[in-house]
């Protein structure tokens, strides 16, 4: 069982999975045991209700317009949420995004 679970949500979970790979590498390099995964925004409900509830949810910038709607769900589940910085996303800066996630958890 991983120490912390970080969930990324975007449109189809496609491009975000690239970022997930970078974040996993960054976490590994820092010697941290995180479970990081990407999913589609339509699956957020299911994931929040599952037994392995994420500790933090990060939204892809392309679906930032859904922030309000998703925030209502994550607030209800008591999980922090933020939108990934556009440049970090584009440049695939896994370490920066990981820092964002950690800041939200703590």
């Amino acid at each position: 069982m991983a120490e912390k679970t970080i969930m990324l949500a975007c449109a189809a979970g496609m491009s975000t999975s690239m970022l997930v790979k970078k974040m996993q590498d960054a976490a590994k390099a820092a010697g941290k045991d995180y479970e990081i995964f990407a999913t589609s925004t339509s699956d957020v409900d299911e994931k929040l209700a599952s037994s392995n509830k994420p500790d933090v949810v990060l939204l892809g910038p392309q679906v930032s317009y859904m922030k309000k709607e998703i925030q209502a769900k994550t607030d209800a589940a008591g999980v922090p949420l933020d939108v990934i910085n556009m440049m970090d996303y584009g440049m695939m800066k896994g370490d920066n995004v990981l820092k964002t996630a950690e800041a939200l958890i703590s």
């Binding site: 975007c10 496609m14 491009s15 975000t16 690239m18 892809g60 910038p61 392309q62 556009m86 440049m87 996303y89 584009g90 440049m91 695939m92």
Partner: peptide, 13 residues
């Protein structure tokens, strides 16, 4: 056919 890195990184947005 995936280009989010360009859309957000160049950026095109």
């Amino acid at each position: 056919n995936i280009n989010e890195p360009f859309l957000f990184g160049l950026p095109l947005v």
